[in-house]
Design a protein around this nucleic acid. Sequence first.
DNA 1: AAAATATGAAACGGTTCCGAAACAATCATA
DNA 2: TATGATTGTTTCGGAACCGTTTCATATTTT
Lengths: 114, 114
Amino acid sequence: MSYPFSTAQALHLWHEVGLSQVRGDEPDLSVRQMTILLSVYLESPPHTVRALAAKLHVSKPVITRALDAMGKLGLVTRRRDETDKRNVLIQRTVGGSLYLERLADLVSAKSQEL
Amino acid sequence: MSYPFSTAQALHLWHEVGLSQVRGDEPDLSVRQMTILLSVYLESPPHTVRALAAKLHVSKPVITRALDAMGKLGLVTRRRDETDKRNVLIQRTVGGSLYLERLADLVSAKSQEL
DNA sequence: AAAATATGAAACGGTTCCGAAACAATCATA
DNA sequence: TATGATTGTTTCGGAACCGTTTCATATTTT
């Protein structure tokens, strides 16, 4: 992107994307859940509960519960770390990839209508 | 903005803004609440519960409760419509303006770091 | 004036989330 | 091997949100 947003454009973009999410049938994730999901998909593994909690400045139970919820939606999976069985490794799924792909397309499309 | 986002840039922007919101002390609004707030501030008055519910494809109680919550935070106010006393007019506040101003600055700033 | 309509809020039961604390499992250390 | 740390989960009471239904008030229609 060559030029940054104006603040007015930023709000319009947020509004449009929010409208699409609220109107749509997809269950809309909370800001926390979405941020966790994006961390898992945009940053390099491994992803652990503790590391995510520290990164987002939230407690570990917040991460655990968000993973429960997103796991039910098929957006992430958990697996035990075999080298250190205390750890849980959060893994990507096809469903999560598709979900974020749709989000990215939506944002990208709305950014062209400014 | 001269060029639209790439989908990868869109996800990075969403991630960065989400991180700032989750980390910050501000209470983060739900997607629905945020979208209602943006509708009130970006579109021309008057704003009624019914119109907002229709616009977002949600039920009226969803709007009422969101207004309750955001009212407590000082982001919006309600006033009776004197010409049709069934209506409630949702009004902007200084607090709401400042809140969205901070959001806009955040998004605009993060969009420059892509 | 009476009945039907419209609007927003309140009540209800169920689900989800929160922070704090307690917990089981695993690892590291001595 | 026993003790202490570390990791993720669970539990607890409290709060918020959901959809549906019911309600009070106000307006419109007949």
